[in-house]
Computed example of a mutant assay.
Amino acid sequence: MNILFTDLDNTLIYSKKTDIAEKVPVELYNGEINSFMSKYSYELLHKLNEKILIVPITTRTYIQYSRIELGIIPKYVLCANGGILLKDGIKSDEWYKESLDIVKPSSDEREKAYAFLQKDKRRKFECRNIDDLFIFTKCDETEDVVRDLKAILDMTKVEALYNKDKLYIMPKNLNKADTIKRFIREYATEKVQIFAAGDTEFDTGMIEIADIGFAHKDLNISKNIFNDYEGLFSDFYLEKVLEYIKE
């Protein structure tokens, strides 16, 4: 059984800031096209969907994910960094309840972080408690904010992760690597070969546990993975996965 776990933003889909010669719109937001795929990646994704199980895994909320139209309906999607599972487009209550139990030990630290960020003048976006799973906001001087958070939080229970101005206070055990292990325990019916692709620190763990991992060039990965590509990352890794399963 082959499974491709793929991050979405800047891995499979791209904002309008990315220069793509031939592209397919895949997300509409507030009446405007917000995200694209390359035409080549779009075609590769559809070919792969006939041959392997494709499982998008994203920090996007269910609402944010629901705006995306890939031209296929993945049987499984993992949203909210793995805290929410969609099965044929429908949220699994059982999975979500288990996720709440998993993140419960970090609740005090998340509350502390929320209170800190609410008062922080560097914050430039509302502070959100995402599905009672993790905290999200946007800040100026994000690196400094993270440093200050690490000084007051129990970092054995939570992680302070950021991507440019986006800031997340994430339970230590709500991560993509552990989510993949959990998913395989519950849904794999035979021996699995795992492919994984991603572009940020959120994706490091899942890329490292994969049998075959793909990472952006600027992502520091300790395990030997594929990141020697030219051009668009999605074109590269989707093509490679297709080559592997044809062997």
Rank of each mutant, 00 (worst) to 15 (best):
L4P: 02
F5P: 00
D7Q: 09
L8Q: 03
N10I: 02
T11P: 07
K16F: 02
I20K: 02
K23G: 06
K23C: 01
V24E: 13
P25V: 11
V26D: 03
N30H: 05
E32V: 08
I33K: 06
S35I: 02
S35F: 02
Y40N: 07
S41V: 07
S41Q: 06
L44C: 08
L45D: 05
N49A: 10
N49Q: 11
E50W: 07
K51H: 13
T58D: 06
T59G: 12
S66G: 06
R67L: 12
I73C: 08
P74K: 09
P74I: 11
K75M: 10
Y76N: 12
V77T: 14
V77M: 09
A80E: 14
A80S: 15
K87N: 14
S92E: 14
W95D: 00
E98M: 07
E98T: 07
E98V: 07
L100N: 01
I102F: 06
V103C: 00
K104G: 00
P105T: 03
P105C: 04
K112C: 02
K112I: 01
F116P: 10
F116L: 08
L117G: 04
Q118Y: 05
K121W: 01
R122C: 10
R123V: 15
K124Y: 05
K124N: 03
E126K: 08
N129H: 04
D132F: 05
L133S: 06
F134R: 05
T137W: 14
K138Q: 11
C139Q: 05
C139F: 12
D140Y: 07
D144M: 09
D144Q: 09
D144C: 02
R147Q: 15
R147F: 15
A151S: 15
I152F: 14
D154K: 09
V158L: 13
A160K: 14
N163S: 12
N163F: 11
D165F: 07
K166F: 13
K172G: 02
N173C: 05
N173Q: 09
T179L: 03
R182L: 09
F183S: 02
R185W: 00
E186A: 03
A188W: 04
V192P: 03
Q193W: 05
F195A: 01
A197Q: 08
A197V: 04
G198K: 05
E201F: 10
G205L: 12
D211G: 12
D218V: 04
N220K: 15
N224I: 03
F226Y: 12
E230D: 12
L232E: 09
F233N: 02
S234Y: 00
S234F: 00
D235Y: 07
L238I: 12
K240P: 00
L242Q: 14
L242V: 10
I245Q: 10
I245R: 03
I245D: 07
